[in-house]
């Protein structure tokens, strides 16, 4: 069928790929013709080869070969720990402050004050407190992920339709069950948004935490490769972090949808 609609839908299917394609084309031209020296911008093929070696290679094949699994495992563990900590604190506190005037007034000035501090400022202090490594990274990740989780949970809890809570009350639902059976599901879309934003930020602060000289992790690999002038490995690291961030977001989303009716039916 060669009518206007099919052409249009074909074009709109292509639309998201136009810019990436142009980007790669420019990249290939720039580094293939030598317009940019390869020590600043390696050819995509070099990067592809470095990536394959990093992920699938044998450890004795080269400096970074085959390190991906152990790096990814280390990074994933730090992200998960920090993110879980943030969620465990952020969701209950957020719900509480969204529903209770006292808690809201108690927390809001403090939380908003802390939020104004750029996360990177905590790095020197965290290094002094926790030393280089796991604890510092988890601290930074948890701190950064806490704010979006807390704020969205609070906003979600505050905007729950009071009619739903009244309906629950007249059906004989008391406080505790009301919280879990009405408040949480009704606030679920906001909570989910907060968790997803928090997870995204968690990956950003993971790299910050790992830049400080830990031996493993994706952030550490990037920093290490800079010292050794391996631009290809830096780019590979960046791409892998982006991919892992995206995949973890998808997993989080589908896990929430699996676990909660409200996440499945309201978002």
């Amino acid at each position: 069928m060669m009518n206007g609609t099919t052409i249009k839908s074909g074009l709109s299917g292509l639309l998201p790929w136009i810019l990436p394609a142009l980007f790669f084309l420019t990249w290939i031209i720039v580094s293939g013709t030598g317009l940019a020296p390869t020590y600043l911008l390696p050819h995509p093929e070099t990067i592809g080869r470095a990536g394959v070696a990093y992920i699938f290679g044998d450890p004795d094949q080269g400096a970074y070969a085959g390190r991906f699994l152990s790096d990814a495992r280390a990074s994933l563990f730090r992200v998960l720990m920090g993110f879980s900590l943030a969620a465990l604190l952020g969701i209950p506190l957020g719900i509480l402050s969204g529903r209770t005037m006292v808690v809201r007034r108690l927390l809001s000035a403090f939380v908003n004050g802390l939020r104004a501090v750029p996360g990177i400022c905590w790095l020197p202090l965290a290094l002094v407190w926790f030393g280089i490594g796991l604890k510092t990274t988890i601290f930074l990740v948890a701190l950064a992920a806490f704010f979006p989780i807390y704020l969205n949970a609070a906003a979600g809890a505050r905007s729950v339709d009071p009619l739903l809570l009244q309906a629950g009350a007249m059906m004989g639902v008391r406080r505790l069950r009301g919280t879990f059976a009405i408040l949480l599901p009704a606030a679920m879309p906001s909570i989910m948004t907060g968790l997803r934003l928090g997870l995204g930020i968690a990956w950003a602060y993971l790299v910050l935490g790992e830049l400080t000289g830990v031996p493993d992790g994706l952030g550490a690999v990037i920093m290490d490769a800079r010292m050794l002038g391996r631009i290809d490995i830096i780019v590979v690291g960046i791409i892998l972090i982006a991919v892992m961030g995206r995949i973890s977001d998808l997993i989080l989303k589908s896990a929430l949808r699996q676990l909660f009716k409200s996440a499945r039916r309201l978002t």
Partner: peptide, 18 residues
């Protein structure tokens, strides 16, 4: 206090959407 011995049917839609 509210209780299931006096149930309310509201004017607006107050069903649980999930």
């Amino acid at each position: 206090r509210p209780g299931p011995d006096r149930c309310v049917v509201f004017q607006e839609d107050a069903l649980f959407p999930w």
